[in-house]
Design a protein around this nucleic acid. Structure first.
Lengths: 135, 135
DNA sequence: AACTATACATAAGATTCATATGCATCATAA
DNA sequence: TTATGATGCATATGAATCTTATGTATAGTT
């Protein structure tokens, strides 16, 4: 993130300019699957914090899916509010981290959401599969 | 669709009540894929009209995906406005049908969208695949 | 001193779809 | 013959979900 320093009399205003990586054309296809992705990661990794999730997803998808913070944090807050995740705040150095983990009800919901996801993938696979071009 | 007849002096007001089939829990996962589905069907079927598309999708997905009219018609209009589809109006009996078919540019765009879809499915498959639970 | 990465957060707007409604024709069942 | 369901088009309103943009702060690297 770039930083611009603007002198204003005795005061100093600091404007932060975030940089964004280019998005793939198919980013919009991921709409609706964010919750499931987060939950699935927490099945595999027990506990994770927000920034870690974005990095893990980027790594696992070889950069194809970039979870934006504006999507991630509200999603985490909602999952927590719905009782699917619980938070544990940790201080690392002088920095804050919020670790999320599945609750019992969250684990159940994850199984359900993963089943739906598999069904969706199977169905969509068939719809766009060239083998079905005869239909 | 049920019909209610209401007598109003000499005039007759008719109210139509549409009935809706129950949606699957994973309907929201399809968000973002409607255009691709329509285009793909038009590769396989040359020309189709709106209602036919909804029925075909219902059939192909064994009822799992129900394209609503509120989603379909605006989508068709947009694809037409973008020059990907062209319309041919037909009269069947006393009834109107609007047949849609791919334009040249629409065929190209379809190939591109299908490639994105396959990439998406592959990536998502890996993300939620149990084999990756060790990550 | 500046820049990059790490780490949280929210507000405003865009996109995409579901819901609800409206209108009309045609076939079939009551 | 009348009611109903299926066929066929359409749009408006709102909900959900994300992108974009911004704000703040610490820590390491150039």
């Amino acid at each position: 993130m770039e930083r611009l320093i603007l002198s204003l009399r005795q005061r100093t205003a600091v404007a932060y300019i975030h940089e964004y990586t280019l998005k793939m054309g198919n980013q919009k296809l991921y709409k609706g699957s964010l919750q499931t992705i987060i939950l699935k990661l927490l099945v595999s990794n027990d506990k994770m914090y927000g920034y870690e999730i974005t990095q893990k997803v980027k790594e696992l998808t070889k950069g194809e899916l970039q979870i934006t913070e504006g999507a991630l944090y509200p999603a985490l807050h909602k999952l927590e509010a719905d009782g699917l995740l619980e938070v544990e705040v940790a201080k690392v150095g002088n920095r804050l981290r919020k670790y999320y983990k599945l609750t019992e009800s969250g684990a159940k919901e994850t199984a359900s959401k993963l089943a739906e996801m598999h069904e969706f993938l199977r169905t969509m696979q068939q719809l766009v599969n060239p083998k079905f071009s005869l239909e």
